[in-house]
Design a protein around this nucleic acid. Structure first.
Length: 738
DNA sequence: AATACCTGGGTTTTT
DNA sequence: CCCAGGTATT
């Protein structure tokens, strides 16, 4: 065999996973067991042994990050060789690439637009209007959610489920929903566009039609298929895979049923079981040695996930001993929680640990604000992953609409978005006239307008404006083929008056928006064609914000999958928040178990130390409510945790009190959580500190805020007027008498 | 047609 | 509480 450095340092099951090149392979790989390493080594092995050439390998990942990582590592393994053009990518990006070649088979043209969720909503609202459905009584997003679920399950408009009377969601009838779905799809075709889920749905439909011979082409092309994060595949993705793999059966899927956290998006753990059914000769390999976390962390995670039923079963182990247990702590409220995390971050940093090695993983993005605020006060640099995204900003979407319309004139959504942005004096009336005319002509808006401006149908003033607009688009279209992408973009934004619109805007955000537009133009320079750039934005949608300096990472648990950090903070472990109430209401025990898997994912991100916390009160929609600690805390084996609440208990010595939970999250919607019986909270475990030893007017010292005078006292909360930091509400245990 | 107020709904998670 | 979208007002 050829030199094979990638085989060094693999443990026996990893090595088996790498060397079993032919036939179906299912790798059940626990967190931190080196599955990516195995997958990448396997890809290298396929090449080194001449089992497959790059063009014959299809490597599918779930996230763009994972795809980028795989490309990067494969390239490194091959001595820096470029992997450009290899079939490594997410389900959606690979599907888009394929669909562009066969678009006409489903009634699209190859330059079809992939619309974002903002446009989806706008489109569905238009469909509502056509059907006389009031968008105020029926939530468009909900309906889109239903349609998307169907799409992810491979359900076409003509075979949607039958709803019993009154059973259909959103107070619509089943036939109404079917009509909406149908019209939505029809509108998409008219716009020469598709939504995200369509990429796979269309392709599966193409594959299923033997007449066109497309599937046979791909069967001949791809000899080996690999899939990462297999537990997160949904039905349509699975169908796509199975169709592609059914000829040669050389398919290798890597997954962990304990990390399945996307069932809400249609992911189906059953796919793991289906795999063994569809490919009965599959070799199943388990990777169980964890190279990431210490024994206490792993024991805590194992103990927690053991509460789930219906697992495939896995026994993760590690050789890494540690005295550092999983810390559990409690704070007064979320800002207190954020402060305590910030302080701990500074403590860890003082020990010489880089901020890059620390992460705060939250259940819901609404939790992030408190941390961002506190990090800003403390001056702790942080990066947010998965927050408001660059490409979702208004100015970026506007700019993109210009580019989209230049690329593809049937894109009415783009047309509508920019026709009067910046203001060109075209009011709602004119625009709705145009829409009506276009509808009558059965033409996209742009084509209709192209025609109308040659007639006297439109009044002189809007006519002139539209003539200019149409001329601009046509000219830019020309420019897009002659100029560099960057110059083209700059020209469009400048000549359209869009940049000027923000230059003339005196609001505070205007400068930031201009910066973002500059950044957009810069980002575009990496692309050869406009189409390539548009695809990138539609499919990747992520901030490529790469900063040199060390930062704490703040993100959701979902976004954290696949990542690892030395120190991991897990705040907000409260009933209702985590496990999330809606998840449990919607999906019952299944929902709870998915939440638990999410907790498992969180814990197993930590290499050295995990720190769980919760707040006694949390503000939801501006209102404070009392919380109950997450059941997951109880589920952690006692010998794996360092429960700091115990210390508080001995310090304050309080009796147990029965609290009837009337507050909780019941202001959130109409739902009340869990309150079958009054909840008994062990007040020993919760800090209600002694009455303050402080008196009004007393001079005190606070670590962060310095010296000040107490102005009022409310139980344990002091109002202090600090000499340097001004008036603050602080907890008495954070100040000393001075 | 452009601005200023107001209301109601939202926060689970994302390719 | 905070935002987007809608309505009222100019």
């Amino acid at each position: 065999m050829v030199n094979s450095p990638y085989l060094d340092g693999l443990n026996p099951p990893q090595r088996q996973a790498v060397e079993t090149l032919n036939g179906p392979v299912l790798i059940l790989a626990g967190a931190g067991t080196g599955k990516t390493k195995a997958l990448i080594s396997r890809l290298a092995h396929l090449l080194y042994t001449n089992t497959a050439s790059p063009g014959q390998i299809l490597a599918v990942t779930f996230t763009n990050k994972a795809a980028a990582e795989m490309k990067h590592r494969v390239s490194a393994l091959l001595g820096g060789q470029s992997v450009e053009g290899w079939w490594i990518g997410t389900f959606h990006s690979l599907a888009a690439r394929m669909l562009r070649r066969h678009a006409e088979l489903v009634g699209l043209r190859s330059n079809f637009t992939i619309i974002d969720d903002d446009d989806q909503v706008r489109l569905i609202k238009q469909v509502f209007e056509l059907q006389g459905i009031d968008a105020k009584t029926v939530n468009p997003r909900m309906v889109l959610g239903i349609i998307d679920k169907w799409k992810n399950a491979g359900i076409m408009p003509d075979n949607i489920p039958v709803f019993a009377a009154g059973e259909a969601p959103q107070n619509l009838t089943g036939s109404q929903l079917g009509d909406i779905y149908k019209q939505y799809q029809a509108r998409l075709l008219t716009l020469n566009a598709c939504d995200f889920s369509d990429l796979l749905l269309h392709l599966v439909n193409i594959f299923r039609d033997p007449q066109n011979g497309v599937l046979a082409q791909y069967h001949a092309r791809y000899t080996h298929i690999m899939v990462d994060e297999y537990q997160d595949t949904n039905t349509i993705q699975y169908q796509w895979l199975r169709l592609l793999a059914q000829a040669k059966h050389n398919v290798c899927c890597v997954g962990d049923d304990d990390q399945s956290i996307y069932s809400w998006r249609g992911a189906n753990i059953q796919n793991i079981l289906n795999f063994e059914k569809d490919f009965p000769e599959a070799v199943v390999i388990r990777l169980e040695q964890n190279y990431r976390s210490t024994k206490p962390i792993l024991a805590a995670a194992n103990g927690l996930i053991a509460h789930n039923t219906g697992r495939l079963g896995k026994n993760l182990w590690t050789e890494m001993d540690s005295q550092e247990l999983v810390r559990i702590s409690v704070t007064m409220d979320q800002s207190d929680e954020a402060r305590s995390v910030a302080e701990e971050i500074e403590n860890i940093q003082r020990k010489g640990v880089s901020l890059d090695n620390m992460a705060v993983l939250v259940r819901a993005s609404s939790q992030m604000r408190a941390f961002e605020e506190r990090f800003n006060i403390f001056g702790i640099p942080y990066r947010v992953i998965g927050g408001p995204r660059f490409y979702e900003r208004m100015e970026i979407r506007d700019a993109m609409a210009y580019f989209r319309l230049v690329n593809q004139q049937d894109d009415d959504l783009a047309f509508e978005r920019i026709i009067n942005t910046p203001k060109r004096g075209l009011g709602a009336k004119t625009i709705s006239d145009l829409q009506q005319a276009a509808r009558k002509m059965h033409r996209p808006l742009f084509t209709a307008v192209e025609f109308l401006i040659q007639t006297d149908e439109i009044k002189p003033s809007p006519r002139l404006t539209l003539q200019k607009f149409v001329g601009d688009i046509q000219r830019w279209k020309e420019a897009s083929t002659t100029l560099s992408i960057k110059d083209f973009a700059a020209a469009v934004l400048e000549e359209s008056g869009y940049v000027d619109m923000w230059r003339n805007d005196k609001s505070i955000e205007a400068a930031g928006r201009l910066d973002n537009l500059k950044e957009l133009i810069n980002a575009m320079s990496q692309f050869d064609t406009l189409a390539a750039f548009l695809d990138h934005v539609a499919l990747v949608m992520e901030n490529s914000e790469r900063s040199e300096d060390a930062r704490v990472t703040l993100m959701t648990l979902h976004a954290a999958k696949g990542l690892e950090y030395e120190y991991v903070f897990l705040p907000g472990w409260e009933e209702g928040l985590f496990p999330n109430q809606r998840s449990m209401d919607d999906s019952g025990l299944q929902g709870l178990e998915e939440e638990r898997r999410l907790a498992y994912v969180g814990l197993t991100r930590a290499k050295h130390k995990a720190m769980i916390s919760y707040a006694l009160r949390r503000q939801i929609y501006g209102e404070f409510s009392d919380t109950v600690p997450s059941r997951f805390i109880e589920e952690l084996p006692a010998d794996t945790v360092n429960d700091e609440r115990q210390k508080i208990k001995s310090n304050w010595g309080f009796a147990s009190t029965t609290v009837t939970s009337q507050t909780g999250w019941n202001n959130w919607g109409q739902k009340k959580w869990g309150s079958k019986a009054p909840l008994t909270i062990d007040m020993d475990a919760i800090e209600i500190p002694n009455n303050s030893d402080f008196k009004i007017g007393q001079r005190v010292f606070h670590e962060k805020f310095g010296y000040g005078k107490v102005t009022s006292i409310d139980e344990d909360k002091l109002d202090v007027s600090f000499e340097k930091s001004g008036h603050k509400k602080v907890l008495d245990r954070f100040v000393k008498a001075a």
